[in-house]
């Protein structure tokens, strides 16, 4: 369970932490702290809620140390926890769209393969701003799929496992997200 660079894998660190190695947790935290926080912040659009969920998420990791079994990648496991916490948050805040919103493959096929505007290619700062704005307008599920891919570099299957859907659904969400973002970045220049 070693990474390619000879470092301890996430799973090994989590097991070590389960045996009482606090340093292992620190390493694990330093690896996943920023991606997880960004994922939550961009998914929620609210720093306060993101901090709350972020802390709650890591406390769940801490409290799960004894039960942790490396059946899947640590990343899949921890983002699955994040997904479940987000679902709870959406339920508690009346954001039920996440649960019901599903796109069909047929609709996806109708989406144009937009090109990113030439000026945005040159103005990276504006492009970033535009992308983050477009990301906020995406349906929660699609945004989640996109963010999971960007932040944790998960495969389609891993995204599906973390979000509790089938691989096809995960793939569909991701394609929708990308198409919509590209469309937004290509429309206005």
């Amino acid at each position: 369970m070693r990474s390619m660079r000879g470092e301890a894998s996430d799973e090994e660190l989590m097991l070590r932490y389960g045996r009482g190695d606090a340093r292992a947790f620190e390493l694990l935290y330093s690896r996943h702290r920023l991606p997880l926080y960004r994922f939550l912040l961009r998914q929620l659009g609210n720093a306060e809620s993101a901090e709350e969920l972020f802390q709650d998420l890591w406390m769940r990791v801490v409290n799960s140390r004894g039960r942790y079994q490396p059946r899947a990648k640590f990343t899949s496991w921890v983002y699955a926890i994040a997904h479940n916490r987000l679902m709870d948050f959406y339920r508690a805040n009346g954001r039920a769209s996440f649960l019901s919103h599903e796109e069909s493959e047929s609709v996806l096929e109708d989406l144009p393969a937009a090109e990113i505007a030439a000026d945005l290619r040159l103005d990276r700062k504006r492009a970033v701003k535009r992308l983050l704005a477009a990301l906020g307008e995406l349906p929660d599920a699609q945004r989640e799929a996109f963010l999971l891919q960007q932040e944790s570099e998960m495969s389609i299957d891993e995204i599906a496992a973390a979000t509790g859907v089938g691989p096809e659904t995960a793939k569909s969400r991701l394609r929708y997200a990308v198409a919509k973002l590209r469309a937004r970045l290509g429309k206005e220049s």
């Binding site: 935290y29 926080y37 890591w58 801490v62 492009a127």
Partner: peptide, 30 residues
Amino acid sequence: GRDEELSKIYRDAEEPRPPQRVDDNILAAS
């Protein structure tokens, strides 16, 4: 399924960080 162009733009985005107190709370608890 990854769009590399979008990924590059996304990576250029400012990196928000969790507040120090949140880090401290989590590490202290661990």
